[in-house]
Design a binder for these strands. Sequence first.
DNA 1: ATATTGCATATTGGATCCAATCTACAATAA
DNA 2: TTATTGTAGATTGGATCCAATATGCAATAT
Lengths: 225, 225
Amino acid sequence: MYEGMKARAIDLARTASSSDVIFDALRDEIISGNLQAGESIRQEYIAKLFNVSRIPVREALKRLEAQGLVKNERYKGAVVSSLSDDEIKEIYEVRMNLEPLVIRYSVENMKPETIALAREFCDRFSEEEDSAKWGELNRNFHETLYRECNRPFHLKIIGEAIDRIDSYIRAQLVLTRGMGKAITEHNGILDACERGDADLAAELTRQHIADSYTSLMNFLRKKGT
Amino acid sequence: MYEGMKARAIDLARTASSSDVIFDALRDEIISGNLQAGESIRQEYIAKLFNVSRIPVREALKRLEAQGLVKNERYKGAVVSSLSDDEIKEIYEVRMNLEPLVIRYSVENMKPETIALAREFCDRFSEEEDSAKWGELNRNFHETLYRECNRPFHLKIIGEAIDRIDSYIRAQLVLTRGMGKAITEHNGILDACERGDADLAAELTRQHIADSYTSLMNFLRKKGT
DNA sequence: ATATTGCATATTGGATCCAATCTACAATAA
DNA sequence: TTATTGTAGATTGGATCCAATATGCAATAT
């Protein structure tokens, strides 16, 4: 009985609230760089965009502040966070500490389907013409490889660390078209995962992050001058 | 001119909003264990306590959710998060990765006043009669030793990781009075810092966290049976 | 008795409204 | 001119109100 409904049933109690939807949307705009560092976010404007009052907007902004993506000042409003060179460096330090760990754990549990999915993202990343999609595909690739580490807290930390620098990374990818090295390294990591060589996957990941850091800093220094 | 006022002047633009005050208060109640895992938090009740409307309470709850201290379910409200054994283990993994790092950096910049302050917390921790204060003194001690690492993002991650397990740690401290080993280890770490031996301080910190984990798990297993 | 339904109350999510503060610019004074 | 003051509009923080949903219990049916 009810077989049809059972198939269609979802957990309606966990549908997204307005504030959830707005949080996701603002986060996406920030990490994509559509909302730039230093730009201020008007509650009223966002509220009108989504046809809601400012209340859910403000709740979303509080969450974004807790994750460091915006800074609130009383009666002045929210501003998209910007990062100093030192802050960028520190974020990369965290990544270089944690990401090799999680890929090591992931490799131990990694299913063939996961490898296949990662390879798909990897290929699409190298073939995609639309530069606006490079950042997301790059991120999808890494997230797929980390997914089976069985360490949700690590993944939350890594995800929030990447969120903070993602707009910078994406700008660098688009403006320098500097994906050649990344693609080679992606294939190396993928091969190591496929062969089940966790140590190598971890070391290549560490190296990949280090290279990503140097590329980013070179880009920012050129842009600064 | 205005010398007296200059001395008294503070940045009034950064005074805490209601939602900030309530966030801090709820966080304190959760990490101290006064609000226990699984307990639900009524917006109206908190609002009345602070003589405000539910709006700032809700904003505080959103921030607590972003930090993992409570879980919200739509139309049901906020519940203090509880942790599985695996989740506790994972939090300790993160701590064992990051805290040795930051103490290493701290030792390089550590001023004599910092050592003195840490020693004061260490002594008060071992002498304090009021068990309700042990948790906070323990935490003050470690935070003091980490303070000069010049890595605010690391400290944010570590702080939020400890927030999640602090109520468990405090319960274990109070109920088992198991501070003997901790005190010995604290003195060891302190001595290493004083001698400027960053490697030793890092290794002792790693060991201290590992021991803290075994104590906590022993306590939880006994309590569970 | 047990399971289901209906309803009153409690609680949350969001809309609307008001007060506090900020911002930009005009008016004034030196 | 240049600096200061005053003021109107913009913007935010919070209060109050309403609608949607949850919860507990009584009424009903089996």
